[in-house]
Write a protein that binds this DNA or RNA. Structure first.
Lengths: 112, 112
DNA sequence: CGGCATCCTTTCGGATACTG
DNA sequence: CAGTATCCGAAAGGATGCCG
C-alpha cells in the first residue's frame, strides 16, 4: 500500500489543527446546515458553550476562512451574522465520511 | 469532552476527540500505510515524538479500538508490535476527503 | 447584542529517570 | 526493548465582569 497523498505528507493534521477545537465542528455544522445565524442564535443552538468560547472559536474559524462574519451596525444593539464560507461547506464530504465510519463502527461488535 | 447531547448532529466531534491527539494521526497513518510496526520502528518513523508520548497515544488508540497491540514475550527483550485495526483503516476515506479538500482549497483564489 | 479583557482551572504535551 | 512513574510547563477551556 502506498500513501494516498500526492505529496508525502497528509494534510489531515493541518485540517485537525484548523477545526479541532472543542466547539469548532459543532459551530461549523450548525452554520452549514442552518445557513446564516446570529451570534445569539448560535448560542442557543449550542447551549453548552459560553459566549467567551463561542467568540474565540468563531474568531479562529474566521481567521482560517471557514466562516465569515457580517456586521450590521444597526441602531444601538448591533447585529452580527455568521455563515460558513464555501471552504467551510466544502468540508461536508469529510464529515459525511466520518459519519458513515461512525455508523459502521457502531454496528460492529467490538470487544471491550 | 463527550456529551454532545445533540444527537441529531454528526459524530465528527467524537471522531476528532478520538484521533485529535497531537501524534495520533501520524501514528495511525504510519500503521495504515506500512502495516505492522514495532515500538522502536514507530519511534524511528516519527522521530520528533518521545517514548512517553508514543506510549500514551498508542494506549489511547488501543483503548478506542483503532490500533491493536501484540506482545511477543520473547527472551529478555520483549517484542511488541502494533497495527491498525479494521476500524482504524476504515478512517482512510475520511482522510482522503480531507486531503482533497485541502488540495482544492490551495488552488482556489481566496480573497484575503 | 456582541464581544473584549482578565483571571482561574483543566487538560495536554513532554523531559527525565527507573524497571522487567 | 518497551514500557511505567513523576513532575512540570504550556496551552486549551471556561467563568466573570465591563464596554460600545
Amino acid at each position: 500500500m502506498q500513501d494516498y497523498t500526492s505529496s508525502n505528507l497528509c494534510p489531515a493534521p493541518l485540517v485537525f489543527a484548523m477545526i479541532g477545537g472543542k466547539w469548532k465542528l459543532s459551530i461549523l455544522q450548525v452554520l452549514i446546515v442552518d445557513g446564516t445565524k446570529r451570534f445569539g442564535e448560535l448560542r442557543k443552538a449550542i447551549p453548552a458553550i459560553t459566549q467567551t468560547m463561542l467568540t474565540k472559536q468563531l474568531r479562529d474559524l474566521e481567521r482560517d476562512g471557514l466562516v465569515k462574519r457580517m456586521i450590521y451596525a444597526e441602531v444601538p444593539p448591533k447585529k452580527v451574522e455568521y455563515s460558513a464560507t464555501e471552504d467551510g461547506v466544502g468540508l461536508m464530504p469529510a464529515f459525511k465520511e466520518m459519519h458513515s465510519w461512525w455508523e459502521t463502527r457502531k454496528r460492529s461488535p467490538k470487544a471491550p
